[in-house]
Computed example of a mutant assay.
Amino acid sequence: MVDQQISRDELSAYFALRAAGDRLQRAVATQLREHGLTEAQFTVLAQLQDAGELRMSDLAQVLVASKNGLTYQATQLENRGLVSRRTSEEDARAVIIRLEPAGAELLAKVLPGHIALVREAFLDRVSASELAAISRGLAKVAAN
Results as ranks from 00 to 15, higher is better:
residue 83 V to D: 00
residue 53 E to N: 08
residue 12 S to M: 13
residue 129 S to N: 11
residue 49 Q to Y: 06
residue 27 A to M: 08
residue 115 I to P: 00
residue 23 R to I: 11
residue 85 R to M: 04
residue 19 A to N: 14
residue 93 R to F: 13
residue 113 G to C: 06
residue 80 R to D: 07
residue 63 L to K: 06
residue 53 E to A: 04
residue 82 L to A: 00
residue 24 L to G: 05
residue 57 S to H: 12
residue 70 L to Y: 03
residue 130 E to Y: 06
residue 133 A to F: 08
residue 44 V to S: 00
residue 17 L to H: 09
residue 109 K to A: 15
residue 114 H to Y: 15
residue 17 L to C: 07
residue 25 Q to I: 08
residue 61 Q to R: 09
residue 107 L to G: 01
residue 101 P to I: 01
residue 102 A to E: 11
residue 131 L to P: 09
residue 101 P to M: 01
residue 137 G to H: 09
residue 120 E to G: 14
residue 91 D to A: 08
residue 65 A to L: 10
residue 63 L to M: 14
residue 26 R to E: 12
residue 133 A to S: 14
residue 126 V to Q: 04
residue 61 Q to P: 00
residue 42 F to K: 03
residue 135 S to Y: 13
residue 91 D to V: 08
residue 23 R to Q: 12
residue 61 Q to Y: 01
residue 96 I to W: 03
residue 30 T to F: 12
residue 101 P to V: 01
residue 93 R to D: 11
residue 128 A to D: 12
residue 39 E to C: 02
residue 91 D to L: 02
residue 23 R to E: 15
residue 98 R to T: 11
residue 38 T to E: 03
residue 2 V to D: 13
residue 116 A to M: 07
residue 70 L to V: 05
residue 67 K to M: 09
residue 118 V to G: 04
residue 48 L to V: 01
residue 111 L to V: 14
residue 58 D to H: 11
residue 40 A to L: 08
residue 28 V to W: 01
residue 142 A to S: 09
residue 31 Q to N: 04
residue 128 A to T: 13
residue 45 L to Q: 00
